[in-house]
Write a protein that binds this DNA or RNA. Sequence first.
DNA 1: TGCATTTCTCAGGGAAATCACAGATAGGAG
DNA 2: CTCCTATCTGTGATTTCCCTGAGAAATGCA
Lengths: 246, 246
Amino acid sequence: MTTTSPQGRSELLRPDGSPVRVLVVDDELSITDLLSMALRYEGWRIRSAGDGQGAIQTAREFRPDAVVLDMMLPDMDGLTVLGRLRRELPDVPVLFLTAKDAVEDRIAGLTAGGDDYVTKPFSLEEVVARLRGLIRRSGAADRRSDSVLVVGDLTLDEDSHEVSRAGQGIHLTATEFELLRFLMRNPRRVLSKAQILDRVWSYDFGGQANVVELYISYLRRKIDAGHEPMIHTRRGAGYLIKPAAS
Amino acid sequence: MTTTSPQGRSELLRPDGSPVRVLVVDDELSITDLLSMALRYEGWRIRSAGDGQGAIQTAREFRPDAVVLDMMLPDMDGLTVLGRLRRELPDVPVLFLTAKDAVEDRIAGLTAGGDDYVTKPFSLEEVVARLRGLIRRSGAADRRSDSVLVVGDLTLDEDSHEVSRAGQGIHLTATEFELLRFLMRNPRRVLSKAQILDRVWSYDFGGQANVVELYISYLRRKIDAGHEPMIHTRRGAGYLIKPAAS
DNA sequence: TGCATTTCTCAGGGAAATCACAGATAGGAG
DNA sequence: CTCCTATCTGTGATTTCCCTGAGAAATGCA
């Protein structure tokens, strides 16, 4: 089920109304911390584990609705962990974390059962979006929840990656798409450049902070051109998106 | 009965609305795991067994609507298992898994009764498609569910393997056909190259990921040539198919 | 066996996306 | 009004991703 909180954020809930539970497994503490924080912010209940052994144990008693699993663990192979997890929780969807250069290697079969993966270094938006997709499709959350974000006459479909304003289709690049998704998931809320950088760009991004300005500029050309602007600058604070009407 | 979920995936259900039940029998754990995962994603209820003995027992109490049966089991011959299965469940359709070099005659005789087979290594699309066909024809699912996929003016018949666009017949090779089927079973949804590789190519495929690009290229020549394109690239995300109109 | 078809690898070319840099522009304080 | 600073955006370098031709290898079929 999808509810809308007073702040306008929509939360994914389980059919009985309780929060979604997610288990995060990674041996790097900085990663589990980063992910736990971001996923808690989504309103989800989070547990984390640093190795395969702990993952199995925690899964057994925590019974998560989804698992984020690093394929590179100190004590056992990712596939072994996966196998044991499946024995405990046959239907739980798994989001794999994998090194970029390992993709060719043995991702084979990983996405076959409806699972998914992201490569390190990832952006938090990407992880959150894919987790939401997995949970939605697994049926742990209400299936009727859909994948379309709407703000005013602007719509963004997370499945088809289609964006349109006033019925007019708009082509966005991957980064533009993620930025707009982040804005639209937080309508009427000012997002600082630092927040945007942290969510939309990879955690190891080392570039100039003004990429955010640049991409806001790109978005405006595509979204706001010829319309009442929806993307607004709050000088010294950040950016926000809101319906043109108000 | 065939229902269409909000995401556009169609599910095969039994006449009373309950999910279809499938029993998977194979002694290799990696195979039962892979199949269980993929078939659960189809919305079916899955049980698995690792030998003939377990297969019979599970069949007795699970009463599946279809069985996936490896012909090479540790404890007894495939034909023996089949015989005992038939005693328990006279009408259940069986999908045989067999090594490529297995005696064709023997299998040919078996499939005369409406059963079917695939050779190892198989692709998941193939297994799913054949199972759907068996279940549909057995009457466990509503018979009115048909086997023709339609997206815009493009049609694909899963039974006859005929494909046509705007009434014009198109010849596709086996791989092209499976790729197009996978796309058409997920219209308007972006499918990553990894997903495509995992579903359409055999589970032991160890080659370059750019076969997907290559086959997309082949498909475009045959499907989109001289028409408004239906196959679209989402750079950095994957591919999707949708009606030309929108 | 020999031919035709299909599948796949490899590599070059090209287009698109990302980003740094820097000059232009606009908001706001005084 | 002027200056300072934050923000915007044009240009182009670099990288990444995708497409496709050519041919090798595998497969199927007569």
